[in-house]
């Protein structure tokens, strides 16, 4: 009995120590008071109403860097992801519509829960996209979150059921193209306006600069939207969600249906 009591006491002590380490311990980690030069530049320029010509007017610094400070860099990162999807689509050429006719899916319990959870995942993903300029997150993160709903539905319901509901190759390709088009237009929106008004502007310009007076408003009626950053986040989110959905749909096609398709088309020629 004595050893049991000792074991119980030592367990309690360990739980207390862990609780202490997780709360008090973590918060007392040494944080330097002095900012490094690069951090100083970012903190003073990411959102600063007193110097609008040098500010990106985006409180979330990572998003400010990604879509404003180095927008073109991000554009090519996005392009790499799309080239990967295009390459996958090319690999599946000829069999990209090989969904089985019927699918059973998992049990009623899993399917019912998936229906509810899919709605919540899509809503949370949209919230991540729309708050990209305010809190950590943004287009890519939110888009990837939304694609999780597609992945869950694929497992719980099977590909045939999704195709029945028009979540298929065609739809995801169209939505993805729409997102990409919107992304390119938002990147050039200041440039297009400048061409019409006959002034100067940059590609991926967000706020007005010294020799390029055109920019999107960073707030509408006092509500912060951070100019093009919000637009870029929205279209990037749409394109990424549809891109992942396209990949998942292609990869979950069964081989036997694809083989049937290929053999029948060869025989037909």
């Amino acid at each position: 009995m004595g050893s049991r009591l000792l074991a119980a006491l030592s367990m309690c002590a360990m739980a207390l120590a862990l609780a202490y380490a997780l709360t008090v311990g973590v918060f007392s980690i040494y944080i330097p008071i002095e900012l490094r030069p690069l951090a100083k530049i970012l903190v003073t320029s990411a959102y600063n109403e007193s110097t609008p010509l040098f500010s990106s007017m985006t409180p979330e610094i990572v998003t400010a860097v990604v879509w404003d400070y180095r927008g073109i860099d991000t554009f090519f990162e996005v392009a790499v992801f799309y080239v990967a999807i295009v390459a996958t689509a090319a690999l599946f050429r000829g069999i990209e519509r090989s969904a089985p006719r019927t699918s059973v899916g998992l049990s009623t319990i899993v399917r019912t829960v998936t229906r509810i959870v899919a709605l919540m995942i899509v809503v949370v993903g949209s919230a991540i996209i729309l708050h990209g300029h305010l809190t950590p997150g943004g287009g890519f993160q939110g888009g990837a979150t939304i694609a999780v709903a597609v992945a869950l539905a694929l497992v719980a319901y099977g590909l045939a059921k999704l195709v029945e509901h028009r979540i298929d190759y065609e739809t995801s390709l169209k939505v993805r193209s729409l997102g990409l088009l919107g992304l390119s237009l938002s990147a050039c929106i200041a440039l297009i306006a400048a061409l019409i008004l006959n002034t100067n502007a940059y590609v991926f310009q967000n706020q007005p600069k010294t020799y390029a007076p055109i920019g999107l408003p960073y707030a509408v009626d006092g509500v912060l939207i951070s100019g093009t950053v919000l637009l870029l986040n929205i279209f990037d989110g749409i394109a990424v969600a549809a891109g992942f959905a396209l990949l998942l749909i292609l990869l979950s096609q069964p081989e036997d249906v694809a083989r049937e398709r290929v053999l029948s088309s060869e025989g037909g020629e």
């Binding site: 709605l119 919540m120 708050h131």
Partner: peptide
């Protein structure tokens, strides 16, 4: 339901 999810998450 979705508005509640949205506001709770945000």
């Amino acid at each position: 339901l979705s508005l509640a999810t949205y506001l709770v998450f945000v």
